[in-house]
Design a protein around this nucleic acid. Structure first.
Length: 512
RNA sequence: GGCCCUAUCGUCUAGUGGUCUAGGACACAGCCCUUUCAAGGCUGCGACACGGGUUCGAAUCCCGUUAGGGUCACCA
C-alpha cells in the first residue's frame, strides 16, 4: 500500500509545535506505509503573507528530521506547491461548479450580511446563509457572473446529512440544513482556503488527510465540494488539538519566558527587543532549538501526546514509532480528546535522551552555544576543546539542555568570575570564613599534584585538623573560585581551573 | 447561543463486559545518598464526571445530565 499525506502550513514566520505533531503523524504514516509526504504552502491570503515567513518553517522541519518528499525547495511532479501559484486551478474549479449549478454569484454586501446575522441572533435562530441567486438557473448565474464578477458561493443541498468517516473518531455527521452556503471564491477571484484545500488535495492525489480536529467542521462542506466536483474523497483522520491550560495552544495566552530563559537568549546574542518582537515562546520550535533541546526528545514527546503504543512504553525513537505506526496501531490508536501540553514531561524526556549521548556528542552540540555567547572563539584551539570536554564530563547529568553549558562553562571560560553578591555575603562574609579560606589557600599552594582526588583528600584533612565541617570549606571555596554557589563537583572545578587560577581567584575573593 | 466532538490519577495514557480492591509514565511529597546543584535508590499521595438503564456481572454497551474542547469569516 502506498499513500500520499500532506501538511499544509501557512507562512506565518514560525513553526508551531502543535503543527509539528500533525505533520509528524502524517509523516509517520507515510514512512510506515510507503508513498509520499507532501509539504504544501497555504498562502492564499495574500494580505497576511510575507515571503520570508516560510523559511523558519522549513528550517524547523529539517532540524527535527522530518523531510518532505514533495514541496518547497525539493519540487515534485505536482509542482508548484504554493497555493498562491495555483490560483487559476481553484478559479477554474469554482467556475465549473457555477456552470453545473453547484454555485452561484452572491452580491450581498457585508452590511446586508451583518444585518441578517443580527436579525437571526435576535430571533435566537442559527444563521444559515442562503443567497438570493441560490435558485437562479445555472446558465443565468453564469451570465450574471460574467457580466459582473463577484463572490461565488457553494450551493449546499438542503435536507441531507453529510457523513464523514474518520479514522480517529468513526462516523461524524452534520445536517446540511445547518450549513450556510460557504464562499468559495472571493470577488477578486482568489479562492478561500476551505475550497482551495480540497481542489489541491485532489490535484496532488492526497489519499489521507491527517489534520487537527479544528478542521472537522470544515470537512462536511469539503466533502460536498468533492462530490459536486466529481472528485474522489480521501480518508480523513482528525487528531485532537494540543491544549495549553485547557485551551487550544496558540501564540497568545502563553506564559512569558522565565528570567533564566531570557538570560540565556541574551547570552546567545538576542536583544530584549528581539526577544519580544520575535514572539519566541513555548509554542514555537525555535524556542526549543535555542534552548538546546534534542530533536529526538521533542519528537518522542509529541508522538506520545495523543497516541500510545501500549500500557508502558514512553521511550520511542523515530524508527520505533515508524515501525508501529500503521493504520491500526498508529493512527487507529490516536486518542479523541484534546491533550494538554506538558513542558515538564518534555523536559524529562530531554534529560533521558541527553543521558544517552557521549561526551563527544555533547561537546559538538555545545560548541555553537559557546561561540554565540562569545565564551570561546569562532575557531577554538585544541586546548579549548580539551577544556570543554573536561567541563562537559564534569557536568555529567547536570547538562540537561545544551544551553546549560553557558552556565557551567562561564565561570571557567571567562577570565574573571562574576561574583554573585548574595553568595559572597552568605559564604565569604560569614564570620571566620575568610581566615579559613586564607589558610586553605596555603595548603592548596603547597599541593603538588592538583587533581580532584588529591584536592578532595587535602580538604578533608584540612577540615579534620581545623575541626570544621566539610561544608564550611566547600561553599566558600566554590564561591571564591566561581562566583556562584551552584556548579558541578568542586574538586573537578578546581582541577579544571588549575592551581594558578584557583589561587588568584581566592586572593581576589578575599579582597572583595 | 446553535452545531459538532470528547470525558480514567494534577498531566500524558493502558483498558474494547468478568483477569480492575483500575496498570505505567511525568509531576508532587517524604526518606536515603551527598560538598552545592543534579543524578540515583526507596516509599507515598492520587482517577473510572454524575444519574438512570441493559446484564448474573460494567471504567468498558445504551440514554440523559454536567463539564471541557472545537467550530460557526470574502483567516488558514
Amino acid at each position: 500500500m502506498s499513500i500520499r499525506t500532506r501538511f499544509a502550513p501557512s507562512p506565518t514566520g514560525y513553526l508551531h509545535i502543535g503543527g509539528v505533531r500533525t505533520a509528524l503523524f502524517n509523516w509517520l504514516l507515510r514512512q510506515r506505509l510507503g508513498g509520499q509526504f507532501i509539504l504544501r504552502i497555504d498562502d492564499t491570503d495574500v494580505e497576511r503573507n510575507q515571503a520570508e515567513a516560510l523559511q523558519p518553517i522549513l528550517d524547523g522541519f529539517r532540524w527535527l528530521g522530518i523531510q518532505w518528499d514533495e514541496g518547497p525547495e525539493v519540487g515534485g511532479p505536482y509542482a508548484p506547491y504554493f497555493q498562491s501559484q495555483r490560483l487559476a486551478t481553484y478559479k477554474e474549479a469554482a467556475l465549473k461548479l457555477l456552470a453545473t449549478g453547484h454555485a452561484y454569484p452572491d452580491y450581498m454586501t457585508k452590511e446586508e450580511l451583518d444585518a441578517d446575522k443580527k436579525k437571526a441572533d435576535a430571533a435566537k435562530k442559527p444563521y444559515v446563509h442562503r443567497g438570493p441567486h441560490r435558485d437562479t438557473p445555472a446558465d443565468e448565474c453564469v451570465k450574471l457572473y460574467e457580466a459582473n464578477p463577484t463572490t461565488l458561493r457553494f450551493k449546499v443541498p438542503v435536507g441531507r446529512k453529510v457523513v464523514v468517516e474518520d479514522l480517529v473518531r468513526a462516523n461524524c455527521e452534520q445536517s446540511t440544513d445547518l450549513m450556510g452556503d460557504p464562499v468559495i471564491l472571493r470577488a477578486n477571484g482568489i479562492a478561500l482556503y476551505n475550497f482551495a484545500s480540497v481542489v489541491d488535495d485532489a490535484a496532488l492525489k492526497i489519499t489521507h488527510v491527517v489534520r487537527a480536529s479544528e478542521h472537522l467542521a470544515n470537512t462536511y462542506s469539503q466533502k460536498l465540494f468533492l462530490e459536486a466536483l466529481g472528485l474522489p474523497i480521501p480518508k480523513y483522520a482528525h487528531i485532537p488539538v494540543v491544549n495549553y491550560k485547557g485551551e487550544k495552544m496558540s501564540k497568545r495566552k502563553l506564559p512569558p519566558l522565565t528570567e533564566d530563559e531570557r538570560q540565556k537568549l541574551r547570552m546567545l546574542g538576542w536583544t530584549d527587543e528581539e526577544i519580544t518582537t520575535s514572539g519566541i515562546n513555548i509554542a514555537t520550535v525555535a524556542f526549543y532549538k535555542e534552548m538546546g533541546y534534542l530533536p529526538e526528545a521533542i519528537i518522542n514527546y509529541l508522538g506520545r501526546l495523543g497516541w500510545s503504543l501500549d500500557d508502558k512504553t514512553e521511550f520511542l525513537r523515530l524508527k520505533d514509532m515508524i515501525s508501529h505506526f500503521d493504520m491500526e496501531t498508529g493512527i487507529g490508536r490516536v486518542t479523541k480528546a484534546p491533550g494538554e501540553f506538558d513542558t515538564k514531561k518534555l523536559f524529562w524526556l530531554q534529560d533521558e535522551y541527553m543521558k544517552l549521548l557521549s561526551v563527544e556528542e555533547k561537546v559538538t552540540n555545545c560548541i555553537p552555544f559557546l561561540k554565540r555567547a562569545k565564551l570561546i572563539s569562532e575557531t577554538p584551539d585544541e586546548a579549548t576543546l580539551t577544556l570543554l570536554s573536561r567541563i562537559v564530563t564534569a557536568s555529567g547529568d547536570r547538562l540537561k539542555l545544551f544551553s546549560d553549558i553557558l552556565q557551567y562553562g562561564a565561570p571557567i571560560f571567562k577570565a574573571e568570575p562574576e561574583y554573585n553578591a548574595k553568595s559572597v555575603e552568605k559564604r565569604l562574609k560569614k564570620p571566620g570564613a575568610a581566615d579559613l579560606l586564607r589558610e586553605f589557600a596555603v595548603v592548596l599552594a603547597a599541593t603538588e599534584s592538583f587533581d580532584a582526588a588529591t584536592l578532595d583528600k587535602a580538604m578533608h584533612e584540612f577540615c579534620a585538623a581545623k575541626n570544621v565541617k566539610l561544608g564550611d570549606m566547600v561553599h566558600p571555596v566554590r564561591v571564591a573560585t566561581t562566583g556562584v554557589e551552584v556548579g558541578f563537583g568542586l574538586f573537578d572545578t578546581l582541577e579544571i581551573l588549575g592551581k594558578q587560577r584557583v589561587l588568584e581567584r581566592i586572593e581576589k575573593a578575599l579582597s572583595l
